[in-house]
Design a protein around this nucleic acid. Structure first.
Lengths: 65, 65
DNA sequence: CAAATATGTAAAGCATACTTTACAATGAGG
DNA sequence: CCTCATTGTAAAGTATGCTTTACATATTTG
């Protein structure tokens, strides 16, 4: 699943570390999410959604195939 | 995190087994989700959202606390 | 009631999400 | 160039999501 985390994080002028702190996760987790290494848990997706002020569907692009 | 899966599944007159088949997961997983034993992964949440024809935010209620 | 369908639950195992520690590589500003 | 902030990556460990098998307990239907 692709996501717009990096794009939306940069729009706020936040480093990965800064964003990680706001989310309450490690910097490595933010890095892994941006690089598409894995998808966040649903609760974390909601936190990301809240902090980036976008609906989940506006951040994560689900490709059924 | 609470969810409306059971309510929306019943509205379609689907058994847990029928719904599980449509989702491509086990019946036990559907049961566990409805009973709130754990949250689905984000990809599974998207599948549920698609099949129940509701946005993720309309099915799962995130409580930050 | 009897039989069939639906739901709840448990244990063991595999896969994925996330952590900490640590170090390497990139980029920006003095 | 030097330094510092930022980003990328790896390994080992813990936690969570999901599977299969199996069985018990409803609930529905003939």
């Amino acid at each position: 699943m692709e996501n717009r985390i990096q794009e939306l994080r940069k729009a706020q002028n936040w480093s990965q570390a800064e964003f990680a702190t706001r989310l309450g996760v490690s910097r490595q987790t933010v890095n892994a999410l941006e690089r598409g290494r894995y998808d966040p848990s649903l609760p974390l997706a909601f936190k990301i959604s809240t902090i980036l002020a976008q609906p989940i569907e506006g951040i994560f692009i689900y490709d059924p195939s």
